[in-house]
């Protein structure tokens, strides 16, 4: 554990808190991509299968929180707040993301075991799971401030894992090419968003695409 990873994980928790807070206080899930949320649940379920055979207090607790909160968000979106979700603006073709991640996972896992292939699948899928959400923001051309805070916190989480990997490489020669390449791709996908977030939202203006 180091400060970068801890901060990254905290940002991840904060992003989930912001999302659930936004939905429960406004009683609406407008502006949130159901497809991205469903992909995240798929990511957590396929990555955290090791809950069944490994236990570490910090990791196991976080894994259960991520799976549980993700399932709760999907419950809110398909149950109580379903009328506020507009599928007509949530049209990103997720089958290509799932297909691409599945192909990469089958071709280049560290070991050809079900758990390793699913873990690799989850790493690739997570790197692109935000795309339906970003696509939705791009289509509507604007986003509620709270939604932008959510996307920022989620992006900051993986961005902070990069200095974590550099730190781990320098202190214990940790080197996991898959996590690192996918993590960098994930962070790059957020970069445009980060730029607009910094230049607009943090200066008190509305998030609107130029």
């Amino acid at each position: 554990m180091n400060i970068f990873r801890l901060a990254g994980d905290l940002f991840h928790l904060i992003s989930i808190f912001i999302l659930i807070h936004k939905m429960t206080t406004s009683k609406s899930c407008s502006g949130i991509s159901f497809k991205s949320q469903a992909l995240y649940l798929l990511v957590y379920v396929t990555r955290y299968l090791d809950l069944f055979w490994t236990f570490a207090l910090y990791n196991s607790t976080m894994k259960i929180i991520f799976i549980g909160s993700s399932a709760y968000v999907l419950h809110l979106m398909t149950g109580p707040f379903k009328p506020t979700h507009d599928p007509n603006i949530d049209t990103f073709k997720v089958r290509y993301l799932i297909g691409g991640a599945a192909i990469l996972a089958l071709l280049f896992p560290y070991k050809w075991t079900p758990a390793e292939v699913l873990w690799t699948f989850s790493i690739w899928l997570e790197s692109v799971a935000i795309l339906p959400q970003l696509f939705m923001v791009q289509r509507t051309g604007a986003a509620e401030t709270i939604t932008t805070h959510y996307i920022f916190a989620l992006g900051a989480y993986r961005a902070l894992y990069i200095p974590n990997w550099i730190y781990r490489y320098l202190t214990s020669t940790f080197w996991d090419p898959l996590s690192i390449i996918a993590g960098v791709i994930q962070t790059v996908l957020y970069s445009d968003f980060f730029y607009i977030y910094y230049t607009k939202v943090l200066q008190g203006r509305k998030f609107e695409l130029p």
Partner: peptide, 10 residues
């Protein structure tokens, strides 16, 4: 295996 080290991350 590289992924064993990565498994201690989230």
């Amino acid at each position: 295996v590289a992924s064993d080290a990565a498994k201690d991350e989230l």
